[in-house]
C-alpha cells in the first residue's frame, strides 16, 4: 500500500475514534458564558479548575487507580498460572475450563448485581474498594485467562522443555522463563483488565455509597447533581479523568503492540 493510500484510509479511521474525544477536550476548554456561540472567543482552564475544586474528582481518580490496578494485578496473578497449566502442562479438562470461563463471562452484570450486593454485605465489603476489586477480578478473569492461554501456547514448546532439563520445576520454569518471555502478552491482558475496571459503572454505583470512595465513572455520573449548568465543567472532569488511563496505555504501548502482533502471527 502506498503512503498516500495508507493515509486516505487512516485519516477517516482515526477521525472516527478521535473526533468525539477532541470535541470533549475542546468543550472542556470552552468558556462557560460562551456556550451559545458557534466557536469560543478564547480557551480557558477555568473549567478544569472548577472540576478539581473540592477534591472529589482527584479522590475518584486515586480510587479508580487503586481499584483498577488491584483488579489487574489480582486477575493476572490468578489467570497467568492457570493459563500456563492449560497451555503447557496438559491439564485434563483444560478446554472445558476455558469454555466454562467463556460461558460465565456471558452473564449480564445486571443479573448478578443483586446477589453480589447481598454477598458483599454479608462479607462486610459493601462500600469498600476491595469489595469492588473482587467482583471486577472475577469478571475479568475469563478475558485474562483466554488471552494468556493464547500467549503461552504461542511460546515455543522447547523453551519450557529446556527450562525443565536445565533443572527447573514446572513452577520454576513458569516463573523464571515463561513469565518473563510472555511479558508482552501479560501487559496486554493487564491493560485490557485495567481499562475494563476503570470504566465499570454499574457495580461501582451499586456497591459504593460514600462520596469519598467513588470511582471515576461514579463521580462523573453524579457530577450533574452537584453543579449548576455543568456541561463545560463535566467535560473538563471527563477529560481529566481520561488522562490517567491514557497515560497507562501509552506506558505499556510498546509491549502491548508487540504482544498483540506476536499473538497474531503465531496465533
Amino acid at each position: 500500500m502506498s503512503p498516500r493510500a495508507a493515509w486516505t484510509v487512516a485519516v477517516p479511521y482515526l477521525a472516527f475514534f478521535l473526533l468525539p474525544l477532541g470535541w470533549l477536550a475542546l468543550t472542556s476548554l470552552w468558556p462557560d458564558a460562551e456556550l451559545a456561540r458557534a466557536l469560543p472567543s478564547h480557551l480557558t482552564l477555568e473549567n478544569h479548575a472548577a472540576a478539581l475544586a473540592g477534591g472529589g474528582l482527584a479522590r475518584a481518580v486515586v480510587n479508580s487507580l487503586l481499584v483498577s490496578g488491584a483488579t489487574a494485578a489480582l486477575a493476572l496473578a490468578l489467570a497467568a498460572p492457570a493459563a500456563f497449566a492449560i497451555a503447557r502442562l496438559g491439564v485434563r479438562g483444560g478446554r472445558a475450563l476455558l469454555a466454562a470461563a467463556l460461558a460465565v463471562s456471558m452473564f449480564p452484570p445486571i443479573a448478578t448485581a443483586a446477589p453480589l450486593y447481598v454477598a458483599l454485605r454479608a462479607a462486610r465489603l459493601l462500600d469498600t474498594l476491595p469489595g469492588l476489586v473482587l467482583p471486577y477480578a472475577s469478571f475479568s478473569l475469563p478475558l485474562a485467562l483466554w488471552l494468556l492461554t493464547g500467549t503461552f501456547r504461542a511460546l515455543p514448546a522447547e523453551l519450557y522443555r529446556a527450562a525443565r532439563v536445565d533443572g527447573c520445576t514446572p513452577l520454576g520454569a513458569f516463573r523464571r522463563v515463561l513469565l518473563p518471555v510472555a511479558a508482552p502478552g501479560i501487559a496486554t491482558a493487564g491493560l485490557l483488565v485495567f481499562v475494563f475496571a476503570w470504566n465499570e459503572l454499574l457495580y461501582a454505583v451499586t456497591f459504593l455509597t460514600s462520596p469519598a470512595r467513588r470511582t471515576v465513572p461514579v463521580a462523573l455520573a453524579l457530577f450533574g447533581g452537584e453543579f449548576r449548568d455543568p456541561i463545560v465543567v463535566l467535560a473538563a472532569a471527563s477529560t481529566l479523568a481520561t488522562i490517567p488511563v491514557v497515560a497507562v496505555a501509552v506506558l505499556f504501548q510498546r509491549r502491548v503492540v508487540s504482544g498483540l502482533t506476536a499473538g497474531a502471527v503465531k496465533g
Binding site: R161, A162, R164, V165, G167, C168
Partner: peptide, 29 residues
C-alpha cells in the same frame, strides 16, 4: 525428575532464553 537425572539437552530450535544475555543463558542451569 529431569533435574535429578543430571542430563543436558541441546534442542533443535536451541531454545535459548530470549530475555537473558548469553552469560545468563550459560549460567542458568
Amino acid at each position: 525428575s529431569p533435574r535429578e537425572r543430571d542430563v543436558a539437552m541441546v534442542f533443535q530450535s536451541y531454545a535459548l532464553y530470549p530475555h537473558m544475555t548469553v552469560r545468563k543463558n550459560l549460567a542458568f542451569p
